[in-house]
């Protein structure tokens, strides 16, 4: 069996340690990796807007199991990170913004803005796999949904 050069014994553990360090340093301690989706629910046919796409099957199943609307279309989707004790504002659409404050220990405060006015503020502890849904009905028997969850990337 061919022996490794003596230097390899030092480099190999250092490389493994470095890889671990880089992996965890990407998300700082207490940072929240979040995903926010703006979804539009309707009982009518598919809208003409080509930017709208059908929601992913997992989300569709969750929404269809809970709400009465037949079809759900994704308006936008954003992945973002909120560092500990900081606030980040995310634009979901020209009329809809979400401001998220990371309060530590997976506790976040979400402010939803519609046309620049704060519509609702919610404080919530979010665990992996859980959804926070801010929703409301709209004209023509439609509804909007802002779904937030921890991103497990």
């Amino acid at each position: 069996m061919k022996k490794l050069p003596p230097l390899s014994y030092a480099i190999l553990p250092a490389a493994v340690f470095g890889a671990i360090l880089v992996t965890f340093a990407g998300a700082g301690a207490g940072d929240l990796n979040l995903q926010a989706k703006l979804i539009w629910g309707t009982n009518g046919g598919k809208p003409n807007d080509p930017s709208l796409k059908e929601v992913d099957p997992k989300t569709a199943e969750k929404l269809a199991g809970v709400f009465r609307w037949k079809s759900y279309y994704e308006v936008s989707r954003t992945n973002f990170t909120v560092a500990a004790a900081t606030t980040k504002t995310v634009r979901m659409s020209p009329k809809c913004d979400v401001k998220v404050n990371n309060q530590g220990k997976s506790q976040l405060e979400v402010e939803l803005y519609g046309k620049g006015k704060m519509v609702v503020r919610k404080r919530q502890q979010l665990a992996l796999g859980e959804l926070l849904v801010l929703a409301g009905d709209d004209k023509n028997d439609t509804a909007w949904f802002v779904i937030m969850n921890l991103n497990d990337r």
């Binding site: 809970v66 919610k122 665990a127 849904v133 801010l134 409301g136 009905d137």
Partner: peptide
């Protein structure tokens, strides 16, 4: 506007319904 919050442990979902 007013709101009501629903929580389902089984679904792992919290819904804040905003009534305008």
């Amino acid at each position: 506007t007013s709101s009501i919050t629903f929580r389902s442990e089984a679904a792992g979902m919290t819904v804040v319904w905003v009534n305008s």
